[in-house]
Amino acid sequence: GRRPSILIVEKDIRSSIPECFSHLPMAKRIPLSQVHKDVHPAVLSIGQQMSTFAIKDSISRLEATLKAFRKVIESYETPKGNSLSRHFVPHALNPQIEYLTECRPMCFSMGNAIRLLKAKVNSFDIDTPEDEAKEGLLEMIELFINERITLAEFVIARNAAKQIQDGDLVLTYGSHRLVEKTFLRARGDGRSFSVSIIDDPYDRGGQVMATTLRKAGIRVFYSPNLGGLKTHVERATNVILGAEAIFANGSLHAAAGTADIAVAATAASKKVIALCETINFDRERVSVDALTYNEIDPEQNSAESFRLLYDTTRDHYITGVITEFETGSGNSPAQAI
């Protein structure tokens, strides 16, 4: 039958994970033939893209999920004798969530958005008409995308750009959409500055950003790896880092290598600014080391190589966090969410 074969495949994929990291999850490609029948085609598609990292960062995944859920809601019809507020979540929404989680462990922003979405469904009266409830959910998603993603990005880039002065040499790590937006905004505001990009040779996102910034007329120094980090950091005026999430204790959850940059910058007494939308804040989870919450890179999972996708930067290595609501220190997690 089918079930055992899935188990065997799964066992094989995970068998090369060293025992000391066996508690950590890893994204996994699920053959289309094994996907639960209740999974919506739109969700099916983004799940595949997430498992292959075609949709990668937290906010892109959130946005894709919300847009797919919009289609799920649009095509949802409450079965006779049921109400949307009781039926939608367990029967229509949960299979989508389970599938997405199986493709790749859910990121914090997706978890936050889904919690808010479920709360909204629960807020409906049992006899709220289906159309009205669907309309309410779709409106909420619209507002969510506009406020928590689009507007947040705009505000953060605007506020962070103010941190960049003429003549600055700003150091950053890899590529992050907020960081890129910030540099472009600062350039658009007429600031004249240079950027030093330290890249992760196993990801190389920084190369793409380097090209984009260069096209916008920003002078870019590019380092393909963390070699000579101390020299690069000492030469920089300040450091701007993008975060994937922020834990309840103010620790930064970001691309592996970010913590190394922050530690080097702190040792050199440079200002370290982290950028993060409030939707990525986690109010419950606490992390003091990178092995509490992390993900194994499925592309580097073999006997010859092992790689973690994230690391944890403790709040004392961060000077400040810029969110769309406030600019504060890392250990005052935004109240806004």
Binding site: D200, P201, Y202, N225, L226, G227, A256, G257, T258, A259, D260, I261, V263, A290, L291, N294, D297, Q300, E304, S305, F306, R307, L308, Y310, D311, T312, T313
Partner: peptide
């Protein structure tokens, strides 16, 4: 074999 430059993780 660690495939990473950053080692804080």
């Amino acid at each position: 074999s660690i495939a990473s430059n950053g080692l804080m993780a």
